[in-house]
Amino acid sequence: MSGHTQHHIVPLRHYIGVFVALIVLTAATYLTALIDMGPLNTPVAMAIAIVKALLVILIFMHVKYSNRLIQTMVIASALWLMIMFGFAGGDYLTRGWISG
């Protein structure tokens, strides 16, 4: 409870590493989009995008080093988004099942 706070300082090489990974993954997104994998096209693109987003959130946004409250908030954000996608998607994607 001192007046002076000491936050985690991310080593420079970690920032550079994340930057390189983000550029490489962007290239990977483009290259995998050139291949027609049928129903896997979008899941592969989204998997790469999620990895990129996690790198930004955990390292650039320091969530890896934040307290549990902030980490809970971040997980809640994803959860709330999934609730919206899940319920609305469940409605729209199953409408064709009802005939007449």
Binding site: T29, Y30, A33, L34, I35, N41, A45, V56, F60, M61
Partner: peptide, 26 residues
């Protein structure tokens, strides 16, 4: 900084979803 990174993340999802759907059908 948090705001700036958030805006970057939105683009990370927009790029493949908007631009790359037709890439394999050149």
């Amino acid at each position: 900084g948090l705001y700036w990174h958030f805006v970057d993340i939105v683009w990370i999802f927009l790029f493949p979803l908007l631009y790359l759907l037709g890439a394999h059908a050149t």
